[in-house]
Simulated assay, not measured.
Amino acid sequence: MKDYTNYTTSDLILDDSFRRWVLKNPPDESNFWKEWLTANPGQSENVAIARQFVQNMHQAHELLTEEEIQHELSQLTKAREVKEIAFTPVLNRISWLKQAMAAVVVLGLAGILYYTIQTKLNPPAAYELRKSQWGEALVEIENEGTGQKTVDLPDGSQVTLFPKSRLSYPKAFASAQRAVNLSGGAFFNVTKNPKRPFLVYANELVTKVLGTSFTIRAFDKDAKVEVIVKTGKVSVFSAKEAGAETNAPVLSGLVLTPNQQVVFDRKELNMKKSLVSLPEPIAPETQKAAFTFTNTPVNEAFDKLSNAYGVTIVHDTSVLKNCEISAEFTDESFYEQLDLICKAIDARYGTVDAQIVIYSKGCSTN
């Protein structure tokens, strides 16, 4: 078996096995290249470029003429600002495979290099790149309308796809995991299955869950990628660092709980975890986080608020042991309730690592 470890884009294009995989996808070739890609993730960009080139050549073989090859080479030469490239006519009316191969040889030094340079300067969207890497028949749903679109997945999970968004996934999920590919925004309500993690690939992030509901916003042209949790827990990884952790039936990485979010800055390449701007009760929608406190210990009030919204409120129970609160909350938001409680006991709060921290000197017993 050949050692493809150091193969370049042009090496892949000229390889018989690689072209059979791209054009015919026979089982033995498909299995080999999928395993090889898994073992050599650093080659994914070369593979994506080579696949696209082979497919384009295949689609255009009947129209390809010597004159067109010369014209294309001329255009590529100008684009690369190369003064001179030798060109020897090699095409006659031969079979399409030989024609395509000859074209690859002719354009290999100019066209492939130019295409590679352009791809690095304007990299293909992560969504398209992953579709190419997965290399199997995928179901693709696109929401071209102005309203939301519901998508039912093979495992019973449901996705609400936002406008101008796309979702692709296998017809049947693998036995070890359930993976989908997202471009745009969507709300996921995932069927619980601890033995088969559910993975959402969206731009530079991978979101892993065992069963929960959450929102992802990952539009190709946006500067940031957001993951917002409604119920349950999710873990978020950089796509480059996910590795084998995505297959494990446990949550690791950056773990988010209800009303928490992570924002990935695509320019600075960093993730920031925080609370959402408007936390919602995690109880069923028919219930409200409504409280009536009558001379209630403030420690108890904080605990009830924390449990209702799934937000950790860090407070020193010994310092607040003499503090009580009398109030009735109905339509107030989480932060409004927090403000009123803190004002009543002359305290303040801050947000640290997606948690609320209460600062207080305590209450007098008089």
Rank of each mutant, 00 (worst) to 15 (best):
L73I: 06
Y169Q: 02
E300A: 13
E324K: 15
M1P: 05
R93Q: 08
V352F: 07
P281Q: 11
T317Q: 15
S235R: 02
A308T: 13
F219T: 05
G156D: 05
V209F: 07
Q99Y: 01
D11N: 13
K98T: 06
H315V: 00
K230E: 13
Y4F: 15
V190C: 03
A202W: 01
A248M: 06
L199A: 01
S30V: 00
V54G: 02
N189K: 15
I85L: 14
I117T: 08
E84G: 11
Y115N: 09
A79W: 03
K195D: 14
N366Y: 12
E29Y: 13
G156S: 06
G362V: 09
L14N: 12
E324N: 14
Q55M: 10
K224G: 00
A125M: 02
N322V: 04
E68S: 11
F53T: 01
Q260K: 04
N6A: 10
K83C: 00
G185M: 00
E332P: 03
K233C: 02
N270I: 12
E204I: 01
E280K: 15
E81L: 10
Y359R: 10
G111R: 03
F187V: 12
V190F: 06
L338P: 13
A347N: 04
S95G: 15
Y127Q: 07
N181C: 04
K240H: 03
S95T: 10
L23G: 05
P41C: 06
Y309T: 14
A248W: 11
C363D: 10
E226D: 13
N247S: 03
G310L: 09
A218H: 06
Q337I: 04
E328L: 11
F293G: 03
T257E: 14
K221T: 13
F53S: 00
T9C: 10
V180N: 04
Q148S: 12
S277W: 00
V90D: 12
Q260G: 11
G211W: 00
I85A: 08
N189F: 01
N193M: 12
G184R: 10
R20D: 01
E84V: 04
D16P: 06
Q158M: 09
A244E: 13
T160F: 03
V106T: 10
L167F: 10
L64P: 02
P124T: 03
S44F: 00
A60E: 09
Y114Q: 10
M57S: 05
T207A: 08
L64A: 01
R348Q: 10
R20A: 01
S165F: 07
L251T: 00
D331K: 15
T160N: 07
E35L: 12
H315T: 02
A172Y: 08
V22Q: 06
T330L: 12
L107Q: 09
F173T: 00
I282A: 06
T212W: 02
